[in-house]
Write a protein that binds this DNA or RNA. Structure first.
Lengths: 148, 148
DNA sequence: GCGGTATAACTGCGTGTGCAATGATTTATC
DNA sequence: GATAAATCATTGCACACGCAGTTATACCGC
């Protein structure tokens, strides 16, 4: 097996590890968030992303990228959250095709309830993954990626 | 902000990076595999996992863990692949509740077509992610996780 | 052996997703 | 300035998913 073949296998192995860890964490988060605050992981991701944005507004497309969702899925995701009063649509003045989304007070409130659940569940899931030999190296590598 | 709070934020940041990279890669793989060999990413994962197994057989539950899928989703996933003749169900002799799945010759053949597509797409997706500042550190860390 | 409990896999149901096509607005070309 | 091409968001449709409940088999205490 040559060097190039090794690289291919190493990439595939890394991807399998990444996918496995991702699936594990997402499954746990999904259970915890839906049962405690009736939010799916993507829904939480949207609220969290909005709260990190200056002025708490984002365009649909940005949300799509942030969640790795298609445009149609983003539309319906925002629909659900808007119907629950957690965010509002705001028309863009400068580009009237675009639509901004903003957290409502209710959305911010729910997010403060959801965040501890999210963080504790993430900690537990990572600790569990830490005990699996094939996942441990990636779990240990994650905190080293932090930047300012 | 105390040390504990920092740890929470670092974990969340790591998780967001992991999720973003995973979403990006999965979306690209999905497009490439469905258009070229009509396989979804999870379907490819199953065939690939089976091919790596001694004797090419696995139990349903193992497949569920390997793909981070529920039991019901695993059942229907195996149904789809079986209907296409890519794998077969084999009853377990020792535990008659369990069911083994085995790759067929046709499944192995399709896998050999799919693997280059998968590997090249993965390489391109990682290269693209490598150019995004927030994803680059994780992309660079992945190959270092490889074990013997 | 015989009950009760646990486990493996399967089905009904509601829901979230992507793709393709559509409507509305902006940008480019002439 | 009018027409064409591109972009943002939304809808119709088919399909894959998770949850809860079901069936079949294995395990345990007696």
């Amino acid at each position: 097996m040559g060097i190039a073949d090794d690289a291919v296998e190493i990439r595939s192995q890394g991807w399998r590890t990444l996918a496995a860890l991702h699936g594990l964490i997402e499954t746990e988060l999904e259970r915890a968030l839906t049962s405690s605050v009736a939010l799916s992981v993507v829904e939480y991701t949207v609220l969290d992303a909005l709260s990190r944005q200056h002025g708490w507004h984002m365009r649909m497309q940005q949300l799509g990228r942030a969640t790795a969702l298609s445009a149609s899925a983003t539309t319906r995701l925002v629909n659900r959250l808007e119907e629950r009063g957690l965010l509002t649509r705001v028309l863009c003045a400068d580009d009237r095709r675009g639509i901004y989304t903003e957290l409502t007070a209710s959305g911010q409130k729910l997010l403060t309830e959801a965040r501890p659940v999210h963080d504790e569940t993430l900690e537990r899931a990572l600790a569990a993954a830490r005990d699996m030999p094939e996942l441990a190296p990636l779990v240990d590598a994650l905190p080293t990626l932090a930047r300012a």
